[in-house]
Structure formats: C-alpha cells, structure tokens
Design a protein around this nucleic acid. Structure first.
Length: 887
RNA sequence: GGGCGGUUAGCUCAGCGGUAGAGCACACCCUUCACAUGGGUGGGGCCACAGGUUCAAAUCCUGUACCGCCCA
C-alpha cells in the first residue's frame, strides 16, 4: 500500500543509482534510429544553477521521450575546462598560500590545476544526477582530454595551413588584471557616469590659436598622434594640414580631416590615440598616424611617456594629466558625461583596455559563409525562428576571432619559433623540428608559443570531438550529426555559430539540424538572478525542498517559446503538489484493486465512462507528441497537467467510484482494468517530465508483474501509442453532458447556500427516452457527485416556488428545496443566467442579421452560429419558464 | 543610433482570424471512505492606445506610447 504522500528524498537517489547501475543511460539500450544531443558542457568549475536546470531539463525531456519512442538515444555529457575561470580559482588558492603561479612555474601550475580538477572539479556532474539527467556518463568527456586535445591540434594546424588562422598585430581587448587578450564577445559595455574633458592644444605657428578637443580618457592624450576634424566643418577647415603641439609631451601632431569626427559631439575635434582606441586605430591607418603604445601589460604607463608619468596606473595618470593641464590653463571645461565603458564580462569590475599586441586570429568571415548558407537553406533551423535574424546579423558582420590567450590553463598553441622568429605550426614538436630542419638546413632550437587557445575554440568542436573525431569511430558514424542543440540565446555567438562553422568546415555536415533556443530564468519580479542581488534560486535547495520532479515540471511548463522564465519557490511548490496528486490517484487505484489483467484491450471496453477516458487519454498522447515535436514544452506539460488533474482525477476517478464499490462485478472488473490501464499509460507520458515519481509508481504498482509487462524500468519502456486509437464520439458527448449536468446542480446548490451535506431530490422534465437511459446509466455518479437523493423524470414540471431549476442542453431539472430555498436568491440566479443567454442571442443575431456575414463567411461558421443561437434560445426560454414558476 | 521582443484577470503567463483561458492569489462553503500538498462554488478583463485590412481582429498590417534585451 502506498504512503499517503510521496517523499522524493527517500526515492530519488535510490532510483538514480539503480538506473545508472543498470546501464539505462547508455546509448544503444534501444535499437532504433539514433537520436543525439550534445550537452552544452558546463564549466568544470561550475555548480548547477537554475539556468542549467532549465537547459538540462528540456534536453532530458527530449532524450527520455525519444528513448521511450525506441530511438537509440545518446545524450553526450562532459565539462569545459573554462580557461580563465579555472585558472582564477587556483590562482586565488595560491594567493592564500602566499605564492603565485610565476613562482611556481608553468608546468607545476598546470599540474596543480589538474589536481584541483581531480579533487573538486566536476561537482556539477553530481548535481546533474540529482536533477535526474539521463546522460550517458560512460561517455563523459572533458575539453582537455587527450582525444579532444588532438582534435583541437588538428583543427588549428589545418586552418593554419589553409591560411584561415594567422598572426596579426592589431588592437585587442586586453584584460590588465588577467593580462590576457579576450575576444570582442568577452567584453561587456557598462554605462558609467564620468566626465567629458575639453583640452586646448596650441596650434603650431599660430600664436594664441588653440584647437579644443573633447575626450573621455584624458590619460591617453600622452599617446596622441593626431587630431581629426570633419572635412565639412567650417570651424576647423583652416586648420586642416597644420600641426598642433601636444601639451605635456611637446610632440607635433597633424590635424587631419576625417568623417569619423562628429561635428555635433564635443568640440567637433577629436584627439587621435591610434594605439588605444578602436576608432582611432582605423582613422590612424587611413591617415598614416604614428601608433604609440603608452601602456604596459598592467595598463601602467610605460617609457613612451614623459618621465614624470612613467609607472603610473592608468586612473592615477588620468588625475595627474588633468591636474597638470589645468595648471597650464589648457582645460577649457569639464562636463558631466555618461558613456559606455568596456568591462570584463566575468567579474564586470576590470576595465578592458584596447591594446596593441600580436595575437592569433581565425579568419571567421570565410568560415561564416557556409554557416550562413546552412541556415538560409534550412539545413539548420532555429526554434523559435526569429533567432535566425540575430544569427545572420552577427554572422554577416563577423570580425576576425582572436583565439590566443595569455594564460597557462588551456590548449597550448601548437606553434614553434625558430631562432629568427620564423613560425612552424605542427601537430607536435617533432613535426615542427622536422620542418625547421628543412627550412634552416640544420637542427635548431625551437621555442613553443606560450599562449593557449580561447576556451570556445575547443567548445566549437564539441559535437564531433566528443564522439571521437578525427578518428572515424563507430559512434561518430552512428550519432553524428547530432539532432538538436538546446541552449540559451546568450551563447549563440560564443558557441552555436562557431560549432556550425567548425562542423561544416571539418565534417562537411551541419553538426545538428535544429537549434532550440530557450529563455533566461529570472526571479519572480523578472530580474536577472545574480549573487550580488541575492535573488538567486538554488536548484539544489529547491530539489531538497520539493523534489527534482517538481522543479523539472515547473521549469518545463514555464518554458514557453520567446519568453523569459520567471521562477519562484511558490511555483515549484505547486508542482510538488501535482506530484502528490498523481501519487494519491495511484494510491486510490491501488486501494480499489485496479490491477491490469494481462489480456486487457482498450478496444473491448464497453462502459461509457471507460470509453470516454480512453478517448481523452488518446487526445492527451496526441497533444503531448505534437507539442514535443514542435519543441513546445509548456504545451506538452500543460496538456499532461490538465489531463491528470482536471480530467483523470477530478472526473474519471470520481465518476467510477460507484462502479468500484458496486455490485455489478463485470462493470467493476472492466473499470478496475481501465483505470489501471490509463494510470499506467499516464505515468509513461509523465515520465520524461517527472522521471522519479513515475518510476517509483511503476515499481510499486506494477513491480510484481514487471517482467510480464515488458520488464525492467519504466524509463526504458515503450512510449504509449494510444494516440492512434479513434475517440468514441458518442461516449465523449455523453460524459460531457454528464459533467455539465453535475456542474449545473453544484452551481445552483452553491448559489442557494444549500448545505453540502444536504441530499436533495432531482426531477427531470420531459419524456425523451435517450435522456432517461442516460440518467439511468449514470444514476449513481450523479447522486454521488451532485449529492442527489433521488432522480426521477416527469412529463410536466411541478409548479410552485419551493424549487430551484436548472437547464442543461434544453432540459429543465427541478430541485425541490422547499425548506432551504431563498426565493429572492433563486430568482436573481435564474435572471442572471437568462440574461447571459439573451446577451449571447443578441450578439449572434447581430451577426446573422448582417447580410455580408451570411454571404461571405464560410457556411460552417454560419451554421455554427445558427446552432448556437438555437441552443441559447432554448436555454433562455427554459430559464424564463423557471422564473415564471417562482412567481 | 541599429535590431529583436513584450504590453491579455490582483500577480505570472497561455492563446495569435470565428463563444476571452490557465496557475497562483482572493471570497464563500466543505475534514464526504485517494489526496486539506485536498474538494466544491464564485468574483474579477473596452486583450496598452490610435488608425487600417477583413463578413469577422486580443489574434493580421501601420503608427504612437511605455517596458525589457542584444549590438554599436
């Protein structure tokens, strides 16, 4: 016998272990067509946050669903080495021990990170298990595994040899704290309140003539090598071609005309610091301006500035420069100004510096071309479709991808330098040596490039590198290309686009046919969750409190396409209640002997209620399948929620209670069997969404007969095919009527304050034999659910005011309530009902009276309106009669 | 500045040409033999605004206003 409530804490860990031990998660447990999802690898440093929980739940729903449908499902898990994040963690540990990586040396430091990874990395995979994820852990991969590293080297070398990877000296986004380059995408612009400084630079050879420039970064003036004005700007036309003398430095800098300068902004003249600003860099190239780098790797001023400023930190330098210019009387004015300042996207505290260095780049524009075409031609489809625009927008304007990082943790770039700096890119040192030997005609000492690759470089290969590429492994052949990629929109550029580019280039196939983009999880007020705001909902806490199933179901049912998911604890609690409801429905079935006979066939069911619920079950299966096919997770979960609670529990179980306790053994047996059958199918349908409670119910309810029922775990059973069964329309119509009848009696009772315990009589008016048969058939359920004592049919209605009257499908039912009825209330109730009908009739008449509507609307629509009018008219008439009876 | 999305019941959101929906919250009734993590009933909406298309618009189009997000 089942307990009164379901307690996830006692069940989840045990079931997960059992699944994993039995090999349920491995690909190949079903022999059908392969179905593959590559899990976006979480950072090895990470812990499961609510965003992961959503992302992973949706994938698990798909995987479990497809597995049950017989597909050879593979959900490929793993973790990402997360260059900067991981290195930072270990560096912090070192700092606590009063040491640092430089003291330690590269080799020791990297060893230390591996050690950290072995001890505390991958905590997240344990947390993923708590969520119930059915990934094939036997295939778990890490982006720095040998195999994946080999894939990285191959890709680098081949792209280099094709000329698609090259070294270039240009401005990069420089993180002065980590002392590494980062890509455009790793920079976040943050609005900062600051000032706009107006400086006066003297013009050479023109006494008392100054040109005023406006800047947000005074300290960079020490690296100015020009001034730009707009060619059409009358104010400055006479100065173009002349030189200004840079204050504090004394350098002669040319005044040039360039359209970049906006006459509306500031003074209309802009100082040019080509080595420290992306726009200035472009202008500088156009006008052949000198590039003077004034910062070192820490963004402290270097030897290219006057001695006074050398060694100053950039913000200290700013103060000093302004003070000195003020002293010289060269500050015209200072305005308050709000502008966007680039920050590192991880901590958002370090100001990123445009910095002139030599780095490795991928020629992304070339790789983007086929990647754009793949989406244009529909080889890859985004769901929802509108994300394709975002993708195109970025891909069509793609910039060279800076892939080198000045870190130690990551894939070291397979490039070696000869004594004269000549570069040899090769799979390994031996190959590089051989090439060098040929080049120099003798053996030379090579030095390996110190840099490592951007983390996203290895992630870009994930869908095929995890399957063994470049080896042509069997699993690569069977499971690549993968099917769907499920991810958030925030990494479309970082990851999705790059996977498509690399996949197409190296495998000649799109790595997946569908990209499902889900929303961000926000808090209940719609705020982005962040640790600093303290509004973070920890999925593990929610799992502890309400169970993994509740969290999964909540996430799924809120995952409507194109909207953010607003999460709150209360919502999860609501779906915990749903799990309890299902549990108790099963408990009820168990208590009432609802076992499933081996030879049960839905086709041979005779009872109307049983036929009806089988029809509704079929509809539920069709709804769930259709919704999941279209990645409408919320609709799938919603359909199941309503079927389970609103149909199966609220109506079916209530309607069959009399039969289950009744004398008619044949009816009882059929009902028990049908109930058991529907419940069994229902836990199949709910399994992808709520794997634990359904598996537990399967075990408890059908454990004894598991073997004959197909054996083993629910998660490996076959998905219901009840959707193929035609619905019995007669049964559906009859039960719909029954529900309307019971609803109407309940509403009348409630409106008239008839005590819930009071049993009353009900008398139908008329002599329709079909109606009489229906009433007879459902005599017991009506009595029970509407709390009726006796049901009779009479030719004519009894007169008098001591009765309530309801109208269902044109038939009046009289409820004699002489003792309890409040006539005024009853009149008000009936009048309200009647007026509602009259309003409807008026609306319909307006439509039907419109000649263009009748002539131009489809016949079916017109007919529908006529039918509705007839029904409403009958209703209004009966209600009017009922009112008349009350006097 | 460019792009995308949103505006529907108190809250969170479905619906996206043909009778305005759900969950939660609220009010009232009920411890009736699965479940009070429950059951029953009910109140509550000019579907942001203005035009247009259509026999018919919450739904399609255009514009406006506010609110988000992304990219400069």
């Amino acid at each position: 016998m089942l307990d009164k409530t379901y307690s996830p804490q006692d069940v989840e860990a045990r079931l997960y272990k059992a699944w994993e031990a039995a090999g349920c998660f491995k690909h190949g447990v079903k022999a059908g067509k392969p179905y593959t999802i590559a899990l976006p690898p979480p950072n090895v440093t990470g812990s499961l946050h609510i965003g992961h929980a959503l992302n992973h739940t949706l994938q698990d729903v798909l995987i479990r669903w497809q597995r049950m449908r017989g597909r050879d499902a593979l959900w490929q898990p793993g973790t990402d080495h997360a260059g900067i994040a991981t290195q930072l963690i270990v560096e912090r540990q070192l700092a606590q021990q009063q040491t640092n990586r430089h003291q330690m040396g590269r080799e020791k430091f990297v060893e230390r990170i591996w050690q950290w990874k072995a001890e505390s990395g991958g905590m997240i995979t344990g947390q993923q298990r708590r969520l119930g994820e059915s990934c094939d852990w036997s295939r778990e991969r890490f982006t720095m595994d040998d195999g994946l590293s080999a894939a990285v080297r191959k890709v680098f070398v081949e792209l280099y040899r094709e000329g698609l990877i090259y070294k270039d000296k240009r401005l990069v986004n420089w993180d002065p704290k980590m002392q590494t380059a980062v890509s455009d995408l790793e920079v976040e612009s943050i609005e900062v309140k600051s000032h706009l400084w107006y400086f006066r630079y003297p013009v050479e050879g023109m006494a008392d003539t100054f040109i005023t420039v406006a800047t947000t970064r005074p300290e960079t003036m020490l690296g100015d090598t020009g001034i730009a004005v707009h060619p059409e700007d009358e104010r400055y036309r006479h100065l173009v071609g002349k030189f200004a003398i840079l204050p504090l430095v004394g350098r002669r800098i040319p005044i040039v005309a360039d359209e970049y300068s906006d006459p509306e902004k500031g003074s209309g003249a802009v100082k040019m610091t080509p080595a420290h600003d992306f726009n200035d860099f472009e202008v500088g190239k156009r006008h052949d301006l000198e590039m003077i780098n004034i910062f070192d790797r820490h963004a402290h001023l270097n030897e290219n500035v006057p001695e006074k400023y050398r060694g100053l930190e950039r913000f200290a330098a700013r103060k000093q420069v302004v003070a000195d210019l003020e002293e010289l009387g060269l500050v015209e004015k200072i305005e308050p100004n709000t502008h966007m300042v680039p920050h590192d996207e991880k901590s958002k505290t370090v100001v990123i510096e445009p910095y002139l260095t030599e780095q490795w780049y991928v020629n992304a524009a070339v790789l983007a071309k086929p990647a754009i075409e793949a989406v244009e031609q529909g080889d890859i489809q985004f769901v929802p479709k509108n994300w394709e625009k975002t993708y195109f927008e970025w891909m069509r304007n793609i910039q060279p991808w800076c892939i080198s990082r000045q870190l130690w943790w990551g894939h070291q770039i397979p490039a070696w330098y000869g004594p004269d700096g000549k570069v040899f890119v090769a799979y390994d040192e031996a190959e590089a040596q051989a090439e060098a030997h040929t080049h120099y005609g003798k053996a030379v000492t090579l030095t390996r490039d110190e840099d490592v690759l951007d983390t996203w470089f290895s992630s870009a290969l994930w869908p095929f590198s995890t399957l063994g590429w470049p080896e042509q492994t069997p699993v690569l052949k069977s499971h690549y290309p993968t099917d769907v990629l499920v991810t958030g929109f925030d990494i479309i550029f970082f990851w999705v686009a790059r996977m498509i580019m690399m996949g197409l280039h190296f495998t000649k196939k799109a790595p997946f046919h569908t990209v499902y983009i889900h929303a961000l999880v926000r808090d209940e007020k719609g705020q982005k969750m962040s640790k600093t705001k303290g509004n973070v909902l920890d999925p593990l806490v929610l799992i502890d409190k309400f169970g993994a199933d509740a969290l999964r179901f909540a996430l799924t049912i809120f995952a409507a396409q194109g909207r953010d998911v607003k999460m709150s604890e209360q919502r999860v609690e609501g779906y915990r209640n749903f799990a309890t409801k299902l549990w108790n429905a099963a408990r009820f079935a168990e208590m009432n002997g609802c076992a499933l006979p081996d030879d049960f066939s839905p086709k041979s069911v005779n009872g109307t209620v049983n036929k009806w619920i089988l029809g509704r079950l079929g509809q539920a299966v069709r709804d769930v399948d259709a919704a999941l096919e279209a990645y409408k997770f919320n609709e799938a979960a919603g359909a199941l929620y309503h079927f389970t609670w609103g149909t199966f529990c609220d109506w079916y179980l209530e309607l069959i209670k009399p039969a289950l306790t009744g004398e008619d053994e044949a009816q009882k047996a059929e009902t028990q069997a049908t109930c058991a059958y529907v419940l069994r199918q229902l836990i199949h349908l709910l399994h992808p969404f709520m794997p634990f409670v359904t598996e537990e119910l399967w075990e408890k309810l059908y454990g004894a007969q598991k073997e004959q029922a197909g054996g083993g775990f629910l998660m490996l059973r076959d998905w219901p095919t009840d959707g193929a069964r035609a619905e019995d329309k007669v049964a559906a119509a009859e039960i719909d009527w029954l529900i309307r009848l019971i609803d109407a009696v309940r509403a009348a009772r409630s409106a008239l304050n008839v005590p819930a315990g009071a049993k009353i009589a009900m008398q139908g008016v008329g002599d329709d034999p079909g109606l009489i048969r229906r009433l007879l058939r459902h005599n017991d359920p009506i009595k029970r659910l509407a709390r009726i004592e006796t049901i009779t049919m009479e030719q004519t209605a009894p007169a008098g005011s001591g009765c309530a009257r309801i109208v269902v499908d044109g038939t009046t039912f009289v409820l004699p309530l002489a003792n309890v009825i409040d006539i005024a209330k009853e009149k008000a109730r009936l009048a309200k009902e009647r007026d509602k009908a009259l309003t409807e009739i008026a609306k319909i008449d307006a439509k039907l009276g419109d000649a263009t509507f009748v002539s131009r609307a489809p016949e079916a629509v017109v007919e529908e309106q006529r039918e509705r009018r007839a029904a409403q008219t009958a209703m209004a008439e009966k209600l009017a009669e009922a009112l008349a009876q009350l006097g």
